[in-house]
Simulated assay, not measured.
Amino acid sequence: MRSLCVAAVVAGMMFSSCSEAQTKETAGAEATEKQEKSGKKKGKKGKKNAEAIANLTQVGTMSGVPESSGLALTGEAGSFFTHGDDGTQPILYKISTAGKTLSQLDIPVKSHDWESITRDTNGHVYIGDVGNNNNSRQDLVIYRLNPGNVQQVQEIHLNYLDQKDFPPAKEERNFDCEATLWHAGKVYLFTKDRAQEQTSKVYAVPDQPGNYTAQQVTRLAIPGQVTDAALSPDGRRLVLLARQEMFVLEGNSFEEILKATPRQVSLKGAGQTEGAVFTDNNTLYISNEQGALYTYTF
């Protein structure tokens, strides 16, 4: 009789353990299914949000570019230059206005943290290896090159006049830069305020190779983290792109623009927006790290 009782207890425990395991497995499967459905819903919702942004239209997808982090004109209609973000290969991608990869240019330099690309009126492009997440770099450089002869690369080395410590105190960490812009013989750098998200400092260096101390031009009241900069062809509208938003400054000259009050425009739902370039005075192309390519019409 005792043996039968023990057997019954053991059987009960085995059934209970089995039932508990099945319950946990079922619950886990249900949770996974809910997460997958939730993710799909969020993805659809995100797409709808992007589509709902006034004046913003998705025009393509970049499948061959790892985390697009900048946009620049190539000088040829219907195409742009873009590049990957921190940790990717030193490659310039030539893409169409629909995001299709047309060609690749292998640049014979190191890629520490490429963050921005800009182009001058003579066709030179300037690749900003100026990403500085920890505000501790002392090897900041802008690469100047002619896309027709990428083997000859010139280097613009720079440091910031007001940075004394590497890194500085946390509340002073405003020496990261993801936005550069060529204008009238200078390359302008707009910092990404990692400390307060209140101010983008604007510096400038000559567009010729050499070693420079970047001079601070001004400080802009930007309540966000700047990821790229674009100037309209007529020079009257400056866009400072940020993550899922942008700041628009307007004026009759570049000097006047830098004194203007920024107008904030939400791009919520458009992903991690990192690249921007004008194709005409009213059309801005925007890329994000997830591979989407948009146009924004002013």
Rank of each mutant, 00 (worst) to 15 (best):
V6G: 11
A7H: 02
M14R: 01
S19A: 12
K24A: 09
E25L: 14
E25A: 14
T26V: 07
A29N: 09
E30D: 06
K45I: 05
G46P: 01
A52Q: 11
N55S: 13
L56Y: 14
V59T: 15
G64A: 15
L71Y: 11
L71R: 03
T74P: 10
S79C: 03
K94V: 12
G99I: 09
L102P: 05
V109I: 13
E115D: 07
I117K: 05
T118G: 06
R119I: 15
T121C: 05
H124F: 12
V125Q: 09
G131R: 01
N135K: 03
S136G: 07
V141T: 14
V141Q: 07
I142Y: 03
N146Y: 00
N146P: 04
Q151M: 12
Q152E: 15
Q152G: 06
V153S: 14
E155S: 06
L161W: 13
E172I: 12
N174F: 00
L181G: 02
K186Y: 00
L189K: 02
L189R: 04
F190S: 04
Q198W: 11
D207C: 05
P209C: 02
G210E: 06
Q216A: 13
Q216W: 06
T218H: 02
T218Q: 01
R219K: 12
I222H: 03
V226H: 01
T227E: 08
A229E: 00
A229C: 10
G235V: 10
R236L: 01
R237K: 14
V239S: 06
E245F: 03
E250H: 08
G251D: 10
E255S: 14
A260H: 04
T261G: 00
P262W: 10
P262R: 10
R263N: 15
Q264W: 09
Q264V: 09
K268M: 12
A270D: 06
V277L: 06
D280I: 10
N282Y: 05
L284Y: 05
Y285C: 06
S287F: 09
N288R: 03
N288G: 01
Q290F: 14
Q290R: 11
